[in-house]
Design a protein around this nucleic acid. Structure first.
Lengths: 143, 143
DNA sequence: CTCGTTGATTATCATTTGATAACTAAATGG
DNA sequence: CCATTTAGTTATCAAATGATAATCAACGAG
């Protein structure tokens, strides 16, 4: 397997993933939430509870800007901050009840579109897809 | 294979792809070019020659904004516009020599990082990765 | 105890991006 | 032909994002 060819395929593949992700999520993002705010909410939803620093690191947003956006999200009652007993500098962030409901609904819709996308796949194909995801995740898209 | 589980894996996977893509490309983008401009250049590099409308469609940027950004790129001598004989409304966009050189170097660097990422994979593993890319591209990330 | 580091906040500013309206020119379809 | 559609441009405005400096409190190592 020529590695240069593999790189070519990787480039095409990454573009396709971005495009499909966009396709699955477009027009779903709830009103009054900017793209960056949505991506933060998504991250919180999957990884909660998280600290501000974690959000900053993982989403590549500076601390001041993370703090600003999180403040807005808190003001919109979509997430909540909790003090950490062991380290009083830190704050843990979780989705509020309203935020959880909102993200649940969002994932519900995205999931629906995803299912529609794979609706023609047979059981064996689904198994193949599953293994392919594992392979790539561990060998290429790790860390 | 439970489809809901597959969706969960898809979400994690898409996030990993985004993250690794970011990792591979960060700090490489040449000076004086905004992220959106870079993504346009990338698209032109892979698909040239393209029309303004194609860029607008594929990158989800409105025509006025596409026109504006393309004008800036043209002023920076990174791409060139050509009239189309058959339809004088249209314009084909290509990278200029300088733009081509710049993008070649960029891809060179990204490719280096990619190779480093898969450097421990055996020949069989590379073949497995290759097939996994094909499977996902055709069954999940199509279109 | 003190110094350096970490986690977070506020304020401010420049830049980038997105959105809209108004317009030209060329094609296309009755 | 004339109306409509397509391709692209320009101008303008608002909003989102990124970057920086200054600050504060709490922790941790020596």
């Amino acid at each position: 397997m020529d590695k240069a060819v593999l790189f070519q395929k990787f480039v095409t593949f990454a573009a396709a993933v971005h495009e499909v992700t966009h396709e699955l999520t477009k027009d779903i993002k709830p009103d009054d939430i900017t793209p960056v705010q949505y991506s933060i909410l998504e991250y919180i939803a999957v990884s909660q509870p998280v600290t501000l620093s974690q959000i900053s690191d993982c989403k590549h947003i500076s601390m001041p800007n993370t703090s600003r956006e999180l403040k807005k999200l808190t003001e919109k009652n979509l997430c909540e901050k909790f003090d950490v007993a062991e380290d009083r500098r830190k704050q843990l962030i979780r989705l509020s009840a309203a935020g959880q409901t909102m993200m649940d609904e969002t994932f519900q819709q995205i999931g629906g579109r995803f299912l529609n996308r794979i609706k023609d796949a047979s059981a064996e194909e689904l198994e193949t897809i599953n293994r392919a995801l594992d392979v790539l995740q561990s060998k290429v898209f790790y860390e």
